[in-house]
Design a binder for these strands. Structure first.
Lengths: 214, 214
DNA sequence: TAAAATATACCAGTTTGTGGTATTGCCAAA
DNA sequence: TTTGGCAATACCACAAACTGGTATATTTTA
């Protein structure tokens, strides 16, 4: 079995050493580096190209572990990043995953499960506790809902108004909308005026945001 | 320990019986119903209000298991649905999760893990294999990418410019942006001027569209 | 050090936002 | 059936906001 090359990034020396020992002691894993700072991680990791990086989020430096992932993942897409942290906050989880991390486990995870997670990550999985998975799923479900625009506000606009808002949302000027719809620019303006009234907004961007979620 | 009330929906009699037996034999679980058709599921499950439903996707009837979840989840949000299927296709997974399922496991999962998954689901987790989790994460990341535009055009804007474009995209006026950023409105205007130059557009809406896809 | 990025200011002209008036046609309630 | 309301059309006018330039100065960074 090929050894999985792991790199540890954590500013806490004790934890770093503890993790290193666990990995070194285990068959099928090797620890090729331990790094304490974001700056060094950004420099060293692209050179080392480990299979898996265990990345702490808090690195008491201006850049945190998530920033490091954001920078590195596009450069070395074959390396998988596992966030390894004390946080279980939604915000951090989503930020980390958006940044390109593929796994997210808590520091309190026991060594055996930790090693298993590293292997899963290496084999193309996304190890995380089912609690964290639930949060990801919830976010996923929310996004699905957003696309299914709520028909309440969709139907308060007349067809003509929807048509004009659509053109407005492309960044066209009244003039341009007018010539496309064969209306007078003044009429377009009047429609827009009503659209704003109905959506309770006072400019194009806000109207577009309100009607098409975000 | 409270017994978790489970309901099984599967059109295959053998599998239904096998699952029922596993659940009935295990401490902490009880099987309160086994259902073979989508039609019966839609009728019975809201009455039974089980804690967890094991839902097969293929129910050789016009409605499949995902449709059943879509109908039932809004009616009985406290019941958690676990898709239990032979498929591991992206499409089905996302469709199921969008429909309101919280767990997704494969039929080949061994009984012990299956029971564990049921409990995790009941306790608020989203059990799924780390392979499936990876697909969900990938989908999640794609959606994030859509928001965080392709790095070409993202990086031609300075941080200040990105900050101002962000506020612009909320429909704020120069004045408002100025007071939020402690800049003079004239300075804001100048930044916007540069943003338009860089993005090759001539108004806010077009700039926002260009920078944040659509 | 030279090139960006950042910040401020002013000008001229254009586009919008806001509100008003007015006509036409349609649909539903009185 | 008449009346009232609303969608759609169109025009006017003022003020506010925006766009496109030009200018200048400081700070950051490559």
């Amino acid at each position: 079995m090929k050894q999985i090359a792991v790199c540890i990034v954590d500013d806490n020396r004790e934890l770093r050493n503890a993790l290193e020992e666990i990995i070194t002691m285990s068959d099928g894993y090797k620890c090729i580096a331990t790094i304490a700072t974001a700056e060094e991680a950004v420099v060293q990791i692209p050179i080392l190209k480990p299979d898996v990086v265990l990345m702490d989020i808090n690195l008491n430096s201006p850049e945190n572990g998530i920033d490091v992932v954001r920078v590195l993942k596009p450069r070395i897409p074959d390396t998988n990043f596992m966030m390894c942290t004390v946080y279980e906050e939604n915000e951090k989880i989503f930020e980390a995953l958006s940044a390109g991390a593929s796994g997210y486990i808590l520091k309190k995870t026991d060594p055996a499960r930790m090693l298993e997670a590293i292997r899963e990550l290496y084999e193309g999985g996304a190890p995380m506790s089912s609690q964290i998975a639930r949060k990801v799923v919830a976010a996923f479900q929310e996004q699905s809902i957003k696309n299914n625009n709520n028909s309440e506000e969709l139907n308060i606009l007349s067809n003509r108004e929807k048509e004009i808002l659509e053109l407005l949302s492309k960044g066209l000027m009244y003039k341009e909308i007018a010539s496309q719809t064969f209306l007078s620019p003044e009429t377009v303006r009047k429609h827009v005026y009503h659209i704003y009234e109905k959506l309770h907004v006072t400019n194009r961007v806000a109207a577009v945001n309100k009607f098409y979620g975000r």
